[in-house]
Amino acid sequence: MAKKKTINKDFLISLYSTMIKIRKFEEEGTKLYRQGHIRGYFHPYWGQEAIASGILSAMNKDDYVTSTHRGHGHCLAWGADLVRMFSELLGREDGYCKGLGGSMHIADYTKNNLGANGIVGSCVPIAVGAALGIKIRDENKVVTTFVSDGGCNIGSFLEGLNLASAWKLPVLFVIENNQYAVSTPIESSTGETDLFKRGLSFGIEGIRINGNDVLEVYETANKYIDYCGKNSYPYIIECLTFRKSGHHINDPGTYLPEDKVNFYRNNDPLNIGKKHLTKLAGLSDEEINNIEQETDKVIEEALKVALDKPEMEAKDFLRLVDEY
């Protein structure tokens, strides 16, 4: 259920801190990847920080969340521990999934984070199932499921919408419309690019907002998480946004049109967040700098710790084989 939060200085700072933490985490992760410490897929969340920060700060910790292949931001905004996040990316045993899952599968089932997922859309029915459990157990909780524009075209998403409405379940569908699925622009993959309208034919209301404005995201989320919980019914928030780079670290994203890249560079969620801190919370540039430096320090220290963590030993791994 939605938290009642007054939008005071501390809260604005916490929204911004989460965003800057995600940005810097992805920056350090990218460096590690380039140095060969991280392998496999790495889909940076940068550019979309306002969505994870705004939506998830409106939820309670006993609610549930499901994520996507681009999931670092969701985990961090949900309160993930930096050492365990880095450890997972590095394949270390101290990571959230003992180094067995990696970037695309980070989850924390002990904290109701049902995890990132390598299969586009497959988290959506899973979120619906979590909400079904909530309803059966008569609990006052909400499930938020994240999906991007590409994921809005797959059966899992559409079936999930219908199930949530048919069974009247408290699911908040958050569409992070970054307008691209890898290199495919949204216009070429659907005839209806107002993605929140996907819900209308299932009797689910929705709204489109500026996904780069953390305050707008938070306030919308706060309102509709409350709506989902109170009415035991789904809702869709479509957050318009853009990736800050290619699809994954090795994709230069040369296909992204320059005007859009520039537009979103000028509307970077961090800059918008900074404006809120200046205008609404009255913070000076120096105070904002201090927040950033503090985050730098925390990230640096976490990374140092993670780099010293061991990997799972072969004999321990091989023992697992018997269980499957």
């Binding site: 392998r39 496999g40 394949g91 270390r92 999934c97 180094g99 067995l100 899952g101 990696g102 599968h105 990997e311 799972m312 072969a314 791994f317 091989l318 697992l320 084989v321 499957y324």
Partner: peptide, 15 residues
């Protein structure tokens, strides 16, 4: 291959 899902960690993947 071993009867187990593929691990992310590269050294374990080789196994």
């Amino acid at each position: 291959g071993k009867n187990i899902p593929c691990p992310f960690n590269l050294n374990l993947e080789k196994l």
